[in-house]
């Protein structure tokens, strides 16, 4: 879904309840929300914007690596691993974690939490993920679904020796 910036701009203009009368010209002028800002506020906009832009550009989700599969992690341990072929073939998996029950679906190289009985359902609203570095998390169930690229897949396997022996 694409965000229409005019919607946000329109929402910002809700905060214009004040009208001022200019003494010299006797013209009524509405006060816009940005007229309340002081120089420190603009500094915050700039700093936070720059910081998140730098973090965003350095995050693996942006990198062009090809996906090599997906992993399901509970409490920091990998409990299930999908290869790219399995993700393409499709299927589903039921998982229990910390008294909550989850249904995970995968098809066409994508994977998602399709249903969950956790309180906030952030994992389900995350929707399909398919690009390396993308994640879908459920904090109440301590669960994380993650797409691996070739680079991150290698480091995961060297940590998780059981998988190689098997």
């Amino acid at each position: 879904m694409v965000i229409d910036p005019t919607i946000l701009m329109g929402a910002m203009d809700i905060g214009t309840p004040v009208e001022k009368v200019d003494n010299t010209t006797n013209k009524r002028q509405s006060v816009r929300w940005y007229h309340w800002l002081k120089w420190g506020d603009w500094l915050i906009y700039g700093l936070v914007g720059t910081l998140s832009a730098i973090l965003l550009l350095s995050s693996p989700a942006i990198s062009g690596d090809a996906a090599s599969g997906a992993v399901l992690i509970r409490d920091g341990e990998t409990i299930h691993r999908w290869s790219l072929q399995e993700l393409e073939e499709g299927g589903s998996l039921a998982v229990d974690a910390h008294d909550y029950h989850y249904q995970i679906d995968y098809s066409d190289g994508r994977i998602r939490f399709v249903s969950a009985d956790c309180p906030d359902k952030v994992c389900v609203t995350s929707g399909w993920i398919s690009r390396p570095g993308q994640i879908a998390v459920c904090v109440p169930g301590h669960l994380m679904l993650k797409i691996n690229s070739d680079a991150t897949g290698e480091t995961d396997q060297s940590e998780d020796v059981d998988v190689i022996i098997k």
Binding site: I54, L55, S58, P60, D75, G76, I135, V137, L143
Partner: peptide, 12 residues
């Protein structure tokens, strides 16, 4: 979640 990577992927 024991996933420090969350800081870089989700925070921005």
């Amino acid at each position: 979640l024991r996933e420090p990577l969350l800081m870089t992927t989700y925070l921005p």
